[in-house]
């Protein structure tokens, strides 16, 4: 990543300036022009270095306090098909395959469900299990009890020596 890209991301991650011309404000801090900052921001999005730009709600503060990580042990040869179907449920916000760590951790599929209550999360999981015929596979929901940190992924000031 070049120097200007890095400096722009470092400024952006402190928050988009809440002024009428935020990109001009950033340009002033970078010693660049508004046009260049607009161009570079578009490029960072196009390259996928920035996944999205905008607001990240604090779902806890907004009352969406039931955060259920549903975990499933499904056969490896079916996991892609099952994962894609799970991810299509509107209640599921993230869905990933991750490795098992036997014997302590038998699960290979993770699907996050956020809701207003634990009952809702549990009901959703059981409904999905029935609809996708997953009831025969071991699964459970692991609820969060405390949000301890949520800063989002941040770029560091300097690259650590590798």
């Amino acid at each position: 990543m070049d120097v200007l890209e890095r400096r722009l991301i470092l400024l952006l991650q402190e928050g988009i300036p809440l002024v009428t011309r935020p990109y001009e404000e950033l340009a002033q801090q970078l010693g660049s022009s508004e046009e260049d900052v607009l161009q570079l921001t578009r490029q960072l999005l196009a390259e996928g270095k920035i996944k999205r730009l905008g607001a990240v709600p604090n779902h806890y503060a907004l009352g969406i306090t039931a955060n259920g990580m549903t975990v499933w042990d499904v056969p490896d040869d079916q996991i892609s098909a099952i994962g894609h179907r799970l991810g299509q449920y509107p209640e599921v916000t993230h869905c990933y395959r991750r490795p098992r760590h036997l014997p302590h951790w038998p699960y290979n599929l993770f699907a996050m469900i956020h809701s207003y209550s634990r009952e809702e999360v549990l009901a959703t999981m059981e409904r999905i299990a029935k609809e996708l015929k997953l009831t025969q596979f071991p699964h459970e929901v692991i609820f969060s009890t405390r949000l301890l940190k949520k800063t989002g992924i941040r770029l560091k000031e300097k690259t650590a020596p590798t």
Partner: peptide, 30 residues
């Protein structure tokens, strides 16, 4: 424009927003 800016400011201050900025993808940054 002013109302939009003021409302977003208040959403940040009240803690309704964790952040107002980029969601980064470390995989695309090496």
């Amino acid at each position: 424009e002013t109302e939009v800016i003021e409302r977003i400011k208040n959403l940040c201050l009240s803690g309704a927003l964790s952040r107002f900025g980029p969601v980064l993808n470390p995989r695309r940054m090496g």
